[in-house]
Write a protein that binds this DNA or RNA. Structure first.
Lengths: 218, 218
DNA sequence: GCTATCCGATAGCGCCACTATCTATGATGG
DNA sequence: CCATCATAGATAGTGGCGCTATCGGATAGC
């Protein structure tokens, strides 16, 4: 198909598709003549993935380019691809260097040790966790660390569920892409469900109605 | 204290503090003369909260203004404040209107009914969940819905843990603020832990080393 | 007095995700 | 064969956002 049809099928404007190609998110179409390119199923699929990572996952274009680069990097050991992809899904950002940050680092180290997790501090997710705990501490919720093991229980449940799903449903050649999707979109899924569970729990404790919304929005 | 000291204590530049005041995130200092204002503990605390919601929570400045508006809205029923605050923490964004979106809506409705959650579709989190599931479907992972109950189990665990924490540790007058913090920063905490658990699970299944990172980053 | 600081207001900056426009070329249909 | 349309590729521009710089005038504190 040509770019116009690709655009029609996915709802992504033609100039935006060209922009994604320029940024390396999408491979260029196969040129059949100097100003005519053909796009296939793979392009359509990739385009949908890009939009999902952008709109739902909230990833930045540059981050998507990096992640997809890892996804497409065939002929590397699988666990390296997974690690490379996972490393690019973090928040990044600068870590401060104060007392709270140091305490949070310690808490994370201890958690990893206690859990026997096969990861260490070089994992960007550990840095993200540390930053989040330090932020909690700075706003007066240093005691939140006492929930870490309950959070870890839930996280392990999710990880087991995800791995089982991948094992059941995903072909090897789609594995890296599926892990990216599961990590990014699964995060969005879980975050939404967590907020719903919070509302439910709050309603049971403090609320009366089932929704807590009566025209005060806006 | 004056604005300079507030800046020094929090690490937030003076022009940025003024910007937050303009945007309604931070109440103005109390004027002791036409060009002299005093800031107190409350300002410092609020400023730290703003930075946490911005840097770690990833909220937009306008969203923070809305949420903090609800936090400061004393003299309303508690469950309404909680609802109003929670409603402003969602991703928002436009929902498409295709087959996948319809299927996702149905899946969410069924989930809510199955779980007996005291919430309904007017909850923005439900819309977020639906959007995420529709995105999953569009990238070929419609079967992901089969994990929803495992995700819900985990979400309920987290919600119980959070509520227990609030019950133990938080004074009533800080309740709304703490719920906001718990929702936003707790989300960051859990997301990071989930990624760590994924890495651990992957390492056990596919990997050899404990980290999966050997200089291939960049 | 004198210097550092502050207030409030306005304008500008840098990043980012597009979006518009242009030229040259080729596809398409009568 | 020719008129019209779509396309490739390049460059420039747009709008939103989170700041950041600068300014005039006033006050603090020595």
């Amino acid at each position: 198909m040509r770019i116009g049809e690709l655009s029609r099928r996915t709802g992504v404007p033609v100039p935006t598709i060209k922009y994604y190609v320029r940024e390396g998110l999408l491979p260029p179409g196969e040129l059949s003549s100097p100003n005519q390119a053909q796009y296939g199923e793979a392009h359509e699929r990739r385009l949908r993935l890009i939009r999902a990572l952008l709109d739902v996952g909230g990833l930045k274009v540059a981050a998507i380019a990096e992640v997809l680069g890892a996804v497409d990097d065939r002929g590397r050991p699988l666990h390296k691809l997974l690690g490379a992809a996972a490393d690019r899904l973090g928040t990044a950002g600068e870590a401060d260097d104060d007392a709270e940050a140091a305490a949070a680092d310690t808490a994370v180290e201890e958690l990893i040790a206690r859990r026997g997790w096969r990861t260490h501090e070089s994992n960007p997710a550990a840095a993200d966790l540390s930053r989040a705990l330090a932020a909690m501490d700075r706003v007066g919720h240093g005691a939140f660390t006492e929930l870490l093991d309950e959070y870890a229980d839930a996280a392990e449940m999710i990880a087991r569920a995800d791995l089982g799903y991948v094992d059941r449903r995903v072909a090897v050649e789609d594995l890296v892409e599926s892990v990216v999707i599961g990590t990014v979109l699964g995060e969005a899924v879980f975050n939404a469900m967590r907020r719903m569970a919070h509302v439910d729990a709050s309603a049971r404790l403090y609320g009366v109605d089932g929704a807590g919304r009566e025209g005060e929005a806006g």
